[in-house]
Design a protein around this nucleic acid. Structure first.
Length: 297
DNA sequence: CCTCAGGGCTCTC
DNA sequence: GAGAGCCCTGAG
């Protein structure tokens, strides 16, 4: 199960991973793929995933990661996959670095890994993300969890699991509106009902080819091409997806194309240039563009 | 194909 | 204290 070169050792209330490459907590949790990880004063990150709360601290130079509030069993069953530890990011970065722009972007976000998150949570989170800001998205996702998820205690603090579709189907539209997601609440409500009615099955979608999967996801209200691509990339392992948000549009146009390029042309370009690594390229570019505010006049 | 409204909140003027 | 804009979608 565990990748050969990573050494896993037990410590008090957690694990220490040694000889681990391409893992930087800041890069992973702040590259826009997740909304439930909070930076602590000591630069570690605490987050909720798979009904658990863990704290993650990374030391990139010394190739070490400390995961607190977990054990070997959960590491093997959950976190190894969640952090995509079986993947050789070194070789991905090497291939993408042949492109000089990507080389710069990768230097900036060298410790990014694409988390394998749960499709249901990602679907709702990215419906909320439409025309919204990251702090607001986090706020709404946390409110939904507080209102309909389950409490989990860690270090004297209360956290909440992301509610299941069953837990959320008890909520009516006016209840969902309490998460302050505005006009997106009606989409969440509809999505919940479609899943509970079996009109949409995320497991089936995950097993489809990317184009069919995307078309299926876009049947859900509030899911357009960008949100669908985020769901495909962040929770369904479709690594050729290239979600184009304002930042990726800006950065792609700035380095490779001209202003006001059509969305379909940006997708075509990404497919040609990055192929089945498009999703990884997108993350490095997004992080780079947003941190340095590239392309923003 | 194009344009525009749309929660709520924050940043800018 | 108004106005723009936000990891965008859907209606026209």
């Amino acid at each position: 199960m565990t990748q050969k070169d990573i050494i896993v050792n037990k410590i008090k209330n957690g694990l220490i991973l040694e000889n681990i490459s391409d893992f930087n907590a800041k890069h992973i949790f702040e590259c826009g793929q997740c909304f439930r990880w909070i930076k602590e004063d000591d630069d570690s990150y605490t987050g909720v995933a798979y009904n658990r709360v863990i704290n993650v601290r990374s030391d990139y130079e010394n190739k070490k990661v400390i995961i607190s509030n977990t054990d070997i069993e959960d590491f093997n069953n959950i976190w190894f996959d969640y952090f995509d530890l079986d993947r050789d990011y070194g070789s991905i970065k090497k291939k993408l670095s042949l492109d000089p722009t990507l080389k710069k972007a990768i230097k900036y976000g060298e410790g990014i890994r694409i988390l394998k998150q749960q499709p249901w949570e990602i679907l709702i989170s990215f419906i909320i993300s439409a025309n919204n800001r990251i702090p607001m998205i986090s706020k709404s996702v946390n409110l939904l969890s507080e209102l309909y998820g389950q409490a989990i205690f860690y270090n004297g603090k209360k956290y909440y699991s992301f509610p299941t579709a069953k837990q959320l189907c008890k909520a009516e539209l006016k209840d969902i509106e309490r998460c302050r997601a505005g006009f997106r609440c009606k989409y969440i409500n509809k999505a919940v009902n479609m899943l509970n009615d079996g009109e949409i099955n995320l497991k089936d979608i995950r097993n489809m080819e990317i184009d069919e999967a995307r078309a299926e996801l876009m049947k859900i209200p509030g899911v357009g091409i960008k949100v669908a691509d985020c769901i495909l990339l962040f929770s369904m392992q479709k690594y050729d997806a290239y979600p184009v948000d304002v930042w990726v549009k800006r950065v792609t146009e700035y380095f490779y194309l001209e202003c006001d390029t059509k969305l379909s042309d940006i997708h075509d370009f990404a497919q040609k240039r990055f192929g089945n690594l498009a999703g990884f390229a997108q993350e490095y570019l997004f992080y780079y563009a947003r941190e340095l505010k590239i392309g923003k006049s």
